[in-house]
Design a protein around this nucleic acid. Sequence first.
RNA 1: CGGGGAAUGGCGCAGCCUGGCAGCGCGCCUGGUUUGGGACCAGGAGGUCGCGAGUUCGAAUCUCGCUUCCCCGACCA
Length: 479
Amino acid sequence: MSNEHFVRNIASHDEEYSRWYTDVIYKAQLADWSLVHGCMVIRPYGFSLWENIQQLLDKRFKATGHQNAYFPLLIPESLLAKEAEHVEGFAPEVAWVTRGGQDDLEERLAIRPTSEAIIGETYSKWVQSWRDLPILINQWCNVMRWEKVTRFFLRTTEFLWQEGHTVHRTHEEAREEVLRMLGVYQDFVENELAIPVIAGQKTEQEKFKGALETFSIEAMMGDGKALQAATSHDLGQHFSSVFDIKFQDMDKEMKYAWTTSWGASTRLIGALIMVHGDESGLIFPPNVAPYQVVIVPIWRSDEEQAQVGAAAQQVQRQLGDFRVHYDGRDEYKPGWKFSEWEMRGVPLRIEIGPRDVAARQVTVVRRDTREKRQLPMDGLSATLGDLLREVQGDLLARARTFLSDNTVAASSLPELQEAIAARKFVWAHWCGRTQCELAVKEKTAATIRNIPFERDKAPGSCVNCGQPSTGPVLFARSY
RNA sequence: CGGGGAAUGGCGCAGCCUGGCAGCGCGCCUGGUUUGGGACCAGGAGGUCGCGAGUUCGAAUCUCGCUUCCCCGACCA
């Protein structure tokens, strides 16, 4: 019973991870490429993941006091160019609109690569008094970055995301917001996507262009590479001074406001695929799975088909609280359907056949463990709810084990090199200088993913130069 | 942007070296038998061989140019 037999046309997860990733996305009908380079079509099954992600994240944003709004796609060049470091960071990947209808435009319009500029300019009109603060706004939208090398969900020319943009009276309040939202992301990614992350601060080299400080949560993919799952930026007063967001404070003084931004993208779908998938295809955590349960009926005669169909309908009605798909296709045998839905990552499969109907039970199979059990039809909703929660928890636990099994410490450059070559996350001391960070990158292809909040505070010596370090940081190769 | 590979029906590929009727498997359509881990029989549809030049009586095949995709590295959510 080899896996090649069941999952045709998909490269091996363990031997050809990159191809596996591309193959499984096509085969599971998550996405497709379009005629424009790097522009991805997200198919219904894939978009359903995004809708679930949106819904769960949005709930958290609202619960922390944010409102949604929408800002324009096009940004005048002069506006984008106002913040020097910011525009320099994005310049190579901005797409421009130069014509409208028959006429050349007087000023080029950038298709937003991110919205700090257009939103900052807008906020300057809204803020006069400390009483106008804070502003807590999020937008769900598309952005465009002209990428040379593209991969499904991980790096596409156009992608979907949310970007929160807030304005505060004090730096303390802004910093609280930045860390609060990083915490929101961590909670969401761990508890809904079942992906463990490491939260920390980005180095000067890796931070968002134009930010005072950038924070991230980093996840480990199935091949040991890191993926930044979300970021949160303390923009200081850079953008407020550039875009003139100022207010009269309680002490009658005019002051520049403190702004933040934070975002997560469709890249999270790439993480879902890579973290949980296995040799047989996708595995989705129940909380975001497009279908949480698929029902496969089994019959021989027309009589059995009628019986089984009626029972399946009953079961489906009972499971109204879940995302349930009934696969009544007559042109495929059950075995085909089993393999297909496993490949497409549905967490639980219910088989209903004549034997089940007779015993007033169903056969339930977990995607992650393939464990098969018979459950009574009575009270199935509650039982399945428990089982889905169990699967959700087990996926997170499994990913945590994988993360810790593939995380090591290195005390010298050769050790670091060896560990990175073995596709590990590596704790190593760093003196804090960009030149050493870049030297390590050159020698190992690894970057500092972040300086984790939770780390040894024990002093040591920099893995590159030997100078004193205040604690180890996290090195890894990354997507 | 470097280095390598590829482009032939929806998908996976053979054919190319040595120019001569465009093929195979899967999928798809029709009919029938099947259905508890990827069923089978019969019949059928579907192609500007990535694009553009050139060589030739004749090009999927040879030559030149271009484009796109995939993999591995440098830059990014």
